[in-house]
Design a protein around this nucleic acid. Structure first.
Lengths: 125, 125
DNA sequence: GTTTATGCAAATTCTTTGCAATACT
DNA sequence: AGTATTGCAAAGAATTTGCATAAAC
């Protein structure tokens, strides 16, 4: 768990992420946890847990940051692409279990990449 | 040009986008144009020009929206992926002339997709 | 003349920060 | 005991909105 202490807030936040199979927007996480911890704590903890490699994040359709617990990603997999599908109606984000490489990206020192696909999910269509 | 009127602001904004070969963050555009038009006008115009298919946008590394004039994209190319490279030091964004498809994305109704790669550009390394 | 666009100021939303009090190891 | 974490309130940054005025068609 790196340098992050095992506080009550950490456990609560990680449990909340576990409850959501899908990724969750930071603002929804703040609302979901508003009776358990301050929003500053949510923002600060998420940054720490990112540094620790426990959660990963990406920027969604509307500029909000979405979070999920790391599953297939680790510190030495920073070049992987994590594809996400976001429904433009209900806003839900799903991590897709697809791995691929981008042909023709030479001369660039790519640390990380994110692929966001936007459309209408099966529930909304 | 669709339903957007050919006002002085429209011409000024499109000229500003032409001056920047690269994509530009909306906040930088607001600063760049602050003596020529109000920030509300910038935000409102960009949305209209998006609807008209004149500019395209994507979300950058830090959640800010970046804009550029459409070049290879059009209304009937919504499924194309527009890859962008953003330098994490200087923040510059470059559109990469690479076209590719994602294998294995079936069962999803994908309207648009954006691929953002983050790293250090040649100027900063 | 009618409709759309603009400026302005204020409101909203999202995120960060300083600091004193508290919890963890 | 010593250090990291938290809550709170306030500040900051980005974006939207209402409305009166001005410009485009």
């Amino acid at each position: 768990m790196g340098i992050t202490r095992q506080t009550k807030s950490v456990k609560t936040l990680l449990a909340a992420l576990d409850q959501h199979q899908k990724a969750i927007a930071v603002t929804d996480l703040v609302k979901f946890l508003e009776k358990e911890m301050n929003k500053s704590t949510v923002y600060r903890l998420l940054n720490k847990l990112m540094d620790d490699g426990v959660v990963h994040s990406f920027i969604g359709n509307r500029g909000l940051r979405w979070y999920a617990k790391c599953q297939n990603c680790s510190d030495d997999h920073h070049n992987d692409i994590h594809p996400h599908f976001q429904c433009k109606k209900c806003g839900d984000v799903k991590c897709l279990p697809i791995s691929f490489t981008i042909p023709g990206v030479t001369g660039y020192n790519v640390d990380s990449a994110s692929l966001l696909m936007v459309g209408v999910c099966s529930n909304c269509s």
